[in-house]
Design a protein around this nucleic acid. Structure first.
Lengths: 228, 228
DNA sequence: AATTAGCGTTTCAATAAGTGAAACGCATCA
DNA sequence: TGATGCGTTTCACTTATTGAAACGCTAATT
């Protein structure tokens, strides 16, 4: 498995990723981030712009374009993972009252130390953890971080109390099924589901109950994923 | 405005679009659709695959990849249009009880005769029009088709009775604000909002009432869009 | 069985195409 | 009034993309 890759395209995709990660960036910024010469970055960004993948708004900064939103929305709806996970997330909400998330880790290179929420089921408690689809969260010190590092213990779930956010407890479990699809054969999972709750509402018994629910749903998805 | 574009990248993006439109395609199919030689298509698809924008699943077909879903989700959440439109859609639902949609037309080239739903607010009636984010709908004969053709009359809205689907009435209005952002200066709008309802529940008076609501919300979005 | 057709894949020589240093004009800042 | 940083254009160098052709394969077709 060598690298039969097209450098130009790789760079363009890299730029696209950088623009999306930043939300809005100047030419100088992206070209620094991606370590491309300004002229090259400009040329590629223009190509991306012509195709609608990025747009250059009035203040001259580059932002994700409509074409990307369109394809993303389309892919999101085609993407089996999200559809498969939705009922599981819903069940977790019903069983716990807390918010449940489906996330993937940031792809190789850009933002690989972050996770992105792909789907969300909001909890029913009036005080609940609220985030949004597309939110990028740092992995460091979070339960997702441990899950994506492939260090989930035998119990099948990971708990982080006051990891990323204070007052918040997160309980996560890995989805391994698609392992071979994108990355090479390393044991790190591609996606995870998690329940995130205010810490004051948690106690060891409740945490274990939820943990087992999350782990069970994760394993169930694993089986269902084979339909693809 | 010449064409300072990078051919390789353009082709790769074209392929990406083709894969997304199809949902799942073989190499031979995309290379035919995009009019690229098989070897070129293969090389570019591999590059896209290495970056996670497409994936090649077990049956050898190419599908939208996780990276695209991730960026799309991210962009979707950053994208002001969808956030701006959400309250408007919600208001339309509250005022009409029917489902309301935000859509953009398929981008240049691939799928330009279709529209894609970007955001949805479901109606409150038990019998209601139900679709999903990412759904691609044909423009031909639909009110969206007329709106995207730039042929919206003075009234500010377009009605199509039994256009795309039988028993369904759609009322659409254009969002023009971002006109200059992506496409050249043609008068065609980039996005539209619409209310879609079962025809049996409609009558001329109700249609006019809803039409004016939709047109009003569309114009309001136009103003708000300047914050960007 | 022999034949045809279509697919995914690899190879390779021709050359078309991407590259980045340098220079420019234009802002803003010291 | 220099100095700094930005977006942009130009251009010679040559690297990296290209597509026809050939290969092995499977699955219809004869």
């Amino acid at each position: 498995m060598a690298e039969p890759a097209t450098r130009t395209v790789e760079r363009a995709l890299q730029l696209l990723g950088a623009v999306c990660d930043a939300g809005a960036v100047s030419l100088a910024e992206v070209s620094r981030e991606t370590e491309l010469s300004a002229s090259t970055a400009l040329r590629l960004l223009r190509t991306l712009e012509n195709s609608g993948f990025v747009r250059k708004d009035t203040d001259g900064e580059y932002r994700p374009g409509l074409r990307l939103v369109q394809l993303g929305a389309q892919a999101l709806s085609h993407e089996s993972l999200i559809h498969l996970a939705a009922p599981a997330l819903q069940r977790l909400v019903e069983a716990t009252g807390e918010s449940a998330y489906l996330s993937v880790r940031g792809h190789q290179g850009t933002g690989s130390d972050h996770a992105v929420y792909l789907a969300i089921a909001e909890g029913t408690h009036s005080v609940r953890h609220a985030s949004w689809v597309g939110r990028s969260v740092p992995l460091k010190g979070s339960s997702l971080g441990i899950v994506f590092a492939g260090k989930t213990p035998e119990t099948g779930y990971v708990v982080s109390d006051k990891g990323v956010e204070v007052d918040v407890t997160a309980i996560a479990a890995p989805l391994r099924q698609l392992g071979a699809a994108v990355t090479a054969g390393d044991s790190a999972p591609l996606a995870a589901i998690s329940v995130v709750a205010p810490s004051y509402r948690m106690n060891p018994a409740e945490i274990e109950r939820i943990g087992q629910l999350v782990a069970t749903e994760a394993r169930a998805l694993l089986g269902a994923g084979l339909q693809n």
